[in-house]
Write a protein that binds this DNA or RNA. Structure first.
Lengths: 339, 339
DNA sequence: CTGAAAGCGCTTACAG
DNA sequence: CTGAAAGCGCTTACAG
């Protein structure tokens, strides 16, 4: 591939000059600029970003890292799209690591990304207290967290109002007449889990409903555990009339179990899931869900990060977006209710 | 962050020696190696991959590019996982580009990846005749295609036997007694589309069934068109009793329309989709599907690419994997049939 | 407005 | 077995 030097020779100028036109610096005589641009065109020259990155000072490496817990979760796919879009718009490349919920893989990715000399990092921390990420921050990299923050560290974070989202879902169910409302939640060490549980508690208490600990079940946030916990709920002496699932994967897992048990939604049981999917209407019946836009979260996180890269001294800021309850057809009043 | 030089000073050796231990070259005295390793440990040194990449000869840059048409399609998510897994196992980083089915974005990504000086590229071409990819190959980059090849170029490809997969699906439906079987296909310029249509044709003819052109409908492979084409099919004077959808997104779109029309699966209409999903059992009823493993395809493609990077002169090879028909509950004999 | 020179953090012959 | 030196393709002061 053609190099800077090739272009310089062709245009009969120095490499410094070529570098200047590539970087759109103003102090180049128009005629010179044209000669150089012609040479670039003729040679099909593409700047070597690796060399640029090596030579550049910190905030111009034009590479950000994105580290995600689970790329199989459609929510994070939306995040990827949002980040990519925003990053490429500002001429940043993005390197993605998916760590399948294991801290070991998270650590490896974080090291690789630092080795790749990123300008900064967008990450959804595995746990609220995340040593791996703390180390990255100590190494001086700008970091913005998405979806959830870090308990003991002051970082930028872009997230959604989980408590309110959960509360709205539960109040919707209560409004329909449900009293025995179950909640299948994620891993308790994840901040979003605790916030969603808090929203559940708050709505229940606000309506004078007791919280039956049997109805609130933990898991590791996976499809598999959504399926298992739903079965436990169904097997209860007094099963719930409605269930609120704390994420995409849990929802899908619960749905599988409900169908296997030949229970009908919403007649036998109502369900509302946290996280909407573009194909929620393809489920039968169409799913009522709490929508958070992964695309927007990813986009905002990227913009925040890019700003932070340019001004590392700026104080941390956090963005909290609202959720939206999308009512479709997976809920109705419980049997025998007069609502 | 600590550099090679820092480590060298600390260990009181030259940078050459440190470089040798990092690269696991054999000719280092054990004692020296230990001193260096201790220094690396103490400083928390991580090699700068950008510098390594810049300095390295071609096949040691340790970076591959992955360019995908649509990361919202769960099949490609599986591909990503397969590629990542295999790549990191061999100490390669991977940079991902998602081009949302547009040739313009594909071109941009391809340029970025070349600028990042990748060792090679894994790509699912947008179209059978893809000028963007041809250019990359001409620039001398090893390329392996997944899912579909290039019509006029001899490239390595890892794919699935689409014709057979489609044929199996249709024969299953015919075996159930269906005669009016519709096929919602992807964009005709994509090779997989044509192969799947060929499988459909073959099965129909083999059983002496006429192919009603009204029942075979094209689209751009998206969720939206799956939904629209399904509606057209339903609105036919003599609607099909079964439908075969050519990919994930098309299946989900068709499902949405079927539910909106309050048609029951499988009583009113049977459906089998190309592409299985880990949550196919969460659909109601659980979906019968032709399974192809994106994970395996991604993994194999990566191994092939890594080999090709090491031996660019090797002749092209292609791997064709088998599909598997996963029978669940979305199909049954048509009404009034005696099967 | 333009060029010569240094240097980013490494690897790779070349000597010894 | 180890070190000094060149160089990957750029950017960035420094002169002019």
């Amino acid at each position: 591939m053609a190099t800077l030097k090739d272009v310089a020779e062709r245009a009969e100028v120095s490499v410094s000059t070529v570098s200047r036109v590539i970087n759109k610096e103003p102090l180049v005589k128009p005629g010179t600029r044209e000669k150089v641009e012609a040479a670039i065109e003729e040679l099909g020259y593409l700047p070597n970003r690796v060399a640029q990155r090596l030579r550049s000072i910190n905030y111009r490496k034009k590479l950000i890292g994105l580290v995600l817990p689970d790329i199989q979760n459609p929510f994070y796919v939306d995040v990827v799209r949002g980040v990519e879009e925003a990053a490429y718009r500002q001429n940043f490349s993005v390197m993605i690591g998916n760590f399948d919920q294991t801290e070991e893989k998270e650590k490896i990715f974080l090291e690789i990304l630092q080795s790749e000399s990123i300008d900064g990092l967008i990450v959804a921390p595995a746990r609220g207290r995340d040593e791996n990420i703390r180390k990255v921050i100590e190494n001086g990299y700008p970091v913005v967290c998405i979806d959830r923050g870090l308990v003991d560290l002051d970082v930028d974070v872009v997230k959604v109002n989980n408590e309110e989202g959960a509360r709205n879902a539960i109040e919707f169910l209560i409004g329909l007449g449900h009293r025995r409302i179950a909640h299948i939640t994620g891993h308790p060490s994840i901040a979003t889990t605790r916030e969603r549980v808090a929203g559940y508690d708050m709505a229940m208490r606000a309506h004078g409903l007791d919280i039956d600990p049997e109805l609130v079940r933990n898991s590791d946030s996976s499809y598999q555990s959504g399926a298992e916990l739903m079965q436990e709920l169904i097997d209860l002496d007094e099963p719930p009339t409605a269930v609120f699932t704390a994420n995409n994967l849990l929802t899908l897992g619960a749905l599988k179990t409900i169908h296997e048990n030949e229970l009908h939604i919403p007649e036998d049981i109502s369900i509302v899931g946290f996280d909407d999917m573009y194909w929620s209407s393809s489920l039968n019946p169409p799913l009522t869900a709490v929508r958070q836009s992964g695309y927007d979260i990813g986009g905002l996180a990227t913009e925040l990060l890019v700003k932070k890269i340019a001004h590392p001294e700026a104080s941390t800021s956090s963005v909290v977006l609202d959720t939206e309850l999308i009512v479709r057809h997976s809920c109705k009043p419980p049997r025998g209710s007069v609502a």
